[in-house]
Structure formats: C-alpha cells, structure tokens
Write a protein that binds this DNA or RNA. Structure first.
Length: 727
DNA sequence: ACGGGCGTCTTTTTT
DNA sequence: AGACGCCCGT
C-alpha cells in the first residue's frame, strides 16, 4: 500500500519528509489532516518507526479523535501506542505519573474557569483591598495572560515595584498560586506550566520523554502560546524531528495568548527547517475562494500564500441587506426553506455563523416560530450546569480531600444544616492550623465555638465522605457515581422540589451517569481520577452530534475546523464584525479579518452574507453601516440579493456600486429637509409608524433623536440615516 | 436560609 | 434587554 497515492505533489513531499524540522503551511481545506495521517502511517509502515516514539498534539479532543480514527484505519492496532491528544491531555498524562517529583500529589484536581473565579475571589477578599478597584475578572485575565507568557508572581511584583495596582495584582497572583498549591489543584494553564517545570527540574524525566517522542507533530501551530511553544521545544530538542502544521491566516486566538510569531518565526527558531505550502483547496468553489482571498490579502502580518482550486465556479456569493435582525433571520429561514424544499440541501448541511453568541437569539426565535429544527453550539455547557458541577465537586472532594473549593461547594448541598456561620468557624480554625477544610472537620471537636447540632451534622458529613472514599476503590465507576448521587441526598432533594426545572436537573444527572458508562466502555481500566480529568478537558464542539436534521448555529470561532455545504455569514456590520473595540488597533483588526476569512472558508458550495441596517445590541437600537470587509470582497462575483427583495418590501434601493454601500445609507434622506426636527415634532418611520420626538441632541456630527412611537415605544435614531419623514 | 431589588456588565473561549 | 452577583430584609 502506498501512502502517497492520490496526493498532490506538495502533499507527497510533506509525507515523505520525515527527518528534521518541517513547517507545513496548510491553507483552509487543503487536505492537511490527510497529509498528517498519511505521514504517520508512512513512517510506521515504511520507515519502521515505532508507534510509541510518535507524539501528535492537537488543540481539540475532536481533532485528536478524528486523527486517531483516521490513522487507525491505516495502521490498525498500532494506533494504541501512539500518543495522540491535546496539549492538555498529554500534559495530564505526564503529570499523573510524575507530578510528585515537583511536590504535588498525583491525585491533583483540575480547576476550570468557574473554580478559578471562586478561588480568585477568595484571594481578593483575603488581601483586604478595594474590590471595586480589583475586579476578579480583570485580575484573572491578567494572571492568565501572565501564565501564557510564563511569568510568575515574583517577576511580576519585582517588575512593578512602586506601582500600587500592579503590585497588588501581583500579590493576589501569588496568593492564588499558593492556594492552588494547597488545594493540590492545577488550572488549565498550569497543566502546561507544571509539565515544563517538571521537565526542567528533572533531567532524567526530560531525557526519557525526549527519547520517547522521537517524532513530534503539532497541529494548529498558529494557535500555540509561549508556554506551549516552550514545551514543544523541550520535547523536540534531542531529535529535532518536529513537524508543525498551521495556517497563519487562521490565527484567531491572539486574545487568548496565542502568539502568531510562533508560526511566522518557525524558520528562525528551527534552522534548516523545511517549509511546504499547501495551497490547493479541495473544499470550496472558485467563487467562495476568490472572496476569501480578496479579504485576507488586506492583511500585512502574514506569509505569502494564495489558495486556488480545481473545483467549479459554483453559484455566486449572495449578499443580503436586511432591515433589522429579525428581518435578517427571516431571510435566512426562508432561504433554508427553499433550499430544503427544492431538494438541493438538507437542513444539516446549513450553518449560520455569527460573531457573538448573543446574535443567536433572533435566529432561534424565528426558527422556532417557523418550525425549522436547529441546534446551537456553545452557550451554557453541559458541564457548567449547577447539578453537574455539584456532583463533580463531590467526586473531586472524594478523590482529593484537600480541595477546599469543592468542599465549599458541597458542604451544604443538599441542605444539611451547615450554614455560613459554621463554615466561617471551620475556615478560621483551618487557616490557623494550616490544614484543609476537610481535614479540619475530621477532628471536629477541636474546632472552637461550634454548636452541638453543627458538630453532629459535620460528623455525618465526614462519615459519608469517608465511606465514599473507601467505596470508590471497590466499585465500578458508574455504580459509584450513582451511589454518590443517591446517598448524598441530591436526587432526593430534587425530587421533593417537583418542578420542571428539577426534573431537567435529574435528567441531566442521568445523562452524566451515561457519560460515565461511555467512559468505562472506552477506558476499561479507567479510575475516578482519569474520569474527572477526562471530563474537565471536554468542550462543547466535541459533543456536537452529526448527521441529524437540523441547522447548526455557532460562532465563527467554534466553526474553525468545520465545513458546511451552505454557510450563512450573518451580522456583517461595522462595530459587530469587525467588533467595535478591535477598530483602534491594527493587529486586532487583522485578527478580525482572519476571523472573517475563517468564516468564508467554511463554505463548500454556497455562501450567503447578510447584514442589517438596524440592530439592537444590549437593549440599544442603533443604525449600523455594512462591514468594511464587505468592501474588500470583489463586486464581480457577488450577487446583491438585496434589490429584488427590498423592492417588494417597499424599500428604496439604488444601483450604487458595491464599494459604496456604506454611503448609500448616508445619502438616503439627506435631502428630505430633516433639519427642522425639534422636540414635539411628529415623525413617521418606515417600520414603526408615527411617533413624537421627545429629545434631540448632537452626536458625533450627526443628530440623535429620541422618538416615542405609538406602538413600539421609545427608540433612539440617527437623524441622517433613519428612514423617517416629518409630518 | 432564602428571595427581592438593585447595580453592573456585556467578544470570541480549542482546554 | 437580560443575566448575574451582591446586599439587605425577613
């Protein structure tokens, strides 16, 4: 069997180049996964590389599973010995075996964002500082970005001497780290950082993994941050057989610490690196690709690369201007209806891509009303639900009793008469003795000031948890979790509630148990520890079911790596896409542009782009201009779906060229003698009917008027662009 | 221990 | 607009 059959020349070259550093610049839809999987298979089957000498790192579990499946179909059982996983899961695997060497217990807990928040709140409180000035979200953001850059609290404090705010943040950071340590817990960033620390301080461990990972792959290299970069460097130092795959044009996580320089500077960091560009696209039509190319070429910070395809021209990209977000949603719904009724596409082949999650609402409303089934990716995650977090907290406490965050979460859930006053007494005592909360209540008599009742309740609690700790050793996972759900009285309390909400929660818990069953099937030797680590590294896209008959709605970010025959890119307006605050920085604007590029390249056959004239964001209705990115698209292959429809709705439309769309709105109405508006004037609005002006004020060279409409209530309008006339 | 009222915030989120 | 967190009253 040949592993280069059916590949193009560039792809073949990438498969055959197995020794030394290699950068594969893989454009969207250029068959990168195919190259990666074939390259691994080729190495194993033809070059006699041992599977256990291969490490493949991806960013998502989904990508990891896909790779496992595809490589597995080429090499069979040997797949078992290859380390394929996300950065985080690979690190967990290494840490589970070795973290005791840097002073943690191997049963460590992984804290998610919510746990981090709880912890940081505690730190701020303990520092006794003005919490108006030190917002948890801001501080968490600073800490996370420092961690991404591998800067510890000490360096930060030193670098900010004399700066009260920063110094204080540094102290909070320091406290945060100490608390994590004390709870035997690691946050997501720590998984990488502690692995680096482990390798740096233990030469034998480092050598072991360097020898083991003789061949290394990293997918989505453009999204790596400093810490991940350092980790890869450590791993690959010995053999330098490092193959990274990425696309600088698809770097959209800069705001999370992804450093685009990692990919732009690969040749500098790894001399003698070979670079292969994959520019042939197998996914999209020529028309779609032309639009994508003409957008991305406006960026400066990029490698020179241009996608091309042998695919057909396809249908023109269709642009639609809507009146407001409801109108926009109706257009999308109608179009999907037509596509489905005419038998051209299934609902599951259609996706709606937006910039912010909040935009999904208008689509949901319209789709629900029209009975079109849909699913939303993102939003409230399964594992973020209260009942799931509660049960997980129980499991974590059982597994790692020094985890105070989990302790606090469950100590009085369900209610067992242990209130805030009692908890405070425990805390005071524990902070004196320096032990964990759970350890403190094991000797409950030693804690001063507790009531008889509280003491009793606490004893019952420790008896229960201790029993669980003993049980987990002898029971299988699913039975054990069921036991916890029942014996804690959690289900009981929900059943008593007898509300629809409580029933949903019970359903969710059942779902959680079936997650455990699935886990047990895949991991026969899996322990509670493994299970907890596994689920804390899961995301929403991972659980996306395929092949059902509904339209997918998701943010552009979540859509990365996916493809759909029909894509609706919606909300293409200045201030929304690109986002308002990205406008003052060139690099942020470029990231928005890459985001737009990612969106466009998700489409295989048909691409619709829509924008609305009027949009309500945060309860504020404003007029918006079409996105600048629209003006970067070539007029020639874009069909303005606008005209016909607007005419039927009675709106004026003009024949201005595409690049002038922005001006169209400004021009309209300017000659209508609107200057004489004052408080009390009666106006008629195209959509909202008659109203009375109640306020007039100047706003950035324009007049903003506030109008009380008879039916629709109070609206703010910009005089120059609002479709109103004075009556 | 719980609920109501009020102020605040609101981009994206692979782990 | 809507969600969330916090404070205070019961």
């Amino acid at each position: 069997m040949s592993f280069v059959e059916g590949l193009n020349d560039r792809q073949k070259e990438a498969v055959l180049h197995t020794e030394g550093p290699l950068l594969i610049l893989a454009g969207a839809g250029s068959g990168k996964t195919r190259v990666l999987t074939h390259r691994i298979a080729y190495m194993i089957e033809e070059k006699e590389v041992f599977p256990n000498n291969i490490l493949a790192i991806t960013f998502t579990n989904k990508a990891a599973n896909e790779m496992k499946e595809r490589v597995g179909s080429l090499v069979g059982d040997k797949i078992e010995d290859i380390w394929i996983g996300t950065f985080h899961s690979i690190c967990v695997r290494i840490l589970r075996m070795n973290i005791n060497k840097i002073g943690y217990d191997r049963s460590f807990t992984i804290y998610d964002t919510a746990d981090q928040k709880t912890l940081i709140k505690e730190c701020i409180k303990e520092q006794n500082v003005d919490k108006e000035m030190f917002k948890e979200k801001t501080i968490l953001g600073i800490i996370s970005s420092l961690k991404d850059k591998m800067k510890g609290p000490d360096t930060y404090i030193k670098a900010n001497e004399g700066n009260y705010y920063n110094e204080t943040v540094g102290k909070i950071y320091d406290l945060y780290e100490k608390k994590l340590r004390k709870n035997n817990a690691l946050d997501f960033d720590d998984l990488i950082l502690k692995t680096i620390q482990l390798l740096r301080t233990n030469p034998d461990v480092l050598e072991f993994y360097q020898r083991k990972f003789r061949y290394i792959f990293v997918d989505e290299y453009q999204d790596t941050n400093k810490a991940q970069y350092e980790l890869i460097k450590l791993f690959s130092e010995r053999y330098k057989n490092l193959c990274v795959v990425g696309d600088d044009d698809q770097s959209i996580y800069g705001w999370r610490g992804a450093d685009i320089r990692n990919i732009l500077d690969f040749e500098k960091d790894f001399p003698d690196a070979k670079i292969i560009k994959l520019e042939q696209n197998y996914r999209s039509t020529k028309n779609i690709l032309t639009v994508a190319n003409s957008i991305i070429k406006n960026n400066n910070e990029r490698k020179n690369k241009k996608l091309w395809t042998d695919n057909i021209d396809g249908s023109p990209v269709i642009l639609n201007k809507a009146f407001d977000e409801r109108d926009e949603a109706n257009f999308v719904a109608e179009t999907i209806r037509e596509l489905v009724d005419s038998g051209k596409h299934k609902p599951s082949e259609c996706a709606i891509l937006y910039r912010t999650n909040a935009q999904s609402r208008s689509f949901e409303e319209v789709f629900m009303r029209r009975n079109i089934s849909y699913k939303i990716v993102g939003g409230l995650k399964f594992y973020d639900r209260k009942e799931i977090k509660d049960i997980i907290a129980y499991l974590r406490l059982i597994q790692n009793p020094v985890d105070d965050i989990s302790f606090r979460r469950v100590i009085n859930v369900p209610k067992r008469g242990i209130g805030a006053a009692t908890i405070e007494k425990i805390e005071n005592y524990a902070s004196q003795t320096g032990e964990s909360l759970y350890s403190a209540i094991l000797d409950v008599e030693d804690i001063p000031g507790l009531s008889k009742r509280a003491t009793n309740n606490l004893t019952k609690f420790t008896d229960m948890i201790n029993e669980f700790i003993a049980m987990k050793e002898v029971m299988d996972l699913k039975d054990f979790i069921e036991e916890v759900v029942n014996d804690t009285g959690y289900i009981n309390e929900l059943e008593k509630e007898d509300t629809i909400e409580a029933t949903t929660r019970i359903e969710n818990l059942k779902e959680f148990i079936s997650v455990a069953i699935d886990f047990e099937m895949i991991n026969e030797e899996g322990t509670l520890e493994d299970f907890l680590a596994d689920i804390s590294l899961l995301s929403d896209v991972d659980n996306m079911e395929e092949a059902d008959e509904s339209v997918t709605m998701l943010t552009v970010h979540s859509a990365k790596g996916l493809e759909f025959p029909v894509v609706f890119l919606v909300g293409m307006e200045e201030g929304l896409f690109p986002m308002g605050r990205a406008l003052d920085s060139e690099s942020e604007l470029e990231e928005e542009r890459r985001l737009c590029y990612v969106a466009v390249t998700r489409a295989e056959e048909v691409l619709y782009i829509t924008y609305a004239n009027l949009r309500t964001i945060y309860g504020n209705t404003t007029y918006s201009l079409p996105s600048r990115f629209l003006k970067e698209m070539p007029r020639a292959i874009i069909q303005d779906g606008d005209e016909e429809r607007l005419n039927t709705q009675g709106f004026k439309t003009s024949n201005l060229s595409f690049g002038e769309i922005g001006k169209k709105d400004k021009l309209r109405g300017m000659n209508k003698n609107k200057q004489n508006v004052s408080i009390g004037s009666k106006v008629r609005h195209k959509k909202w009917g008659e109203g009375t002006v109640v306020q007039v004020k100047e706003k950035s060279g324009d007049m903003e008027i506030v109008v009380a409409f008879k039916e629709q209530g109070i609206k703010k309008l910009l005089l120059s662009v609002a479709p109103i006339e004075i009556i």
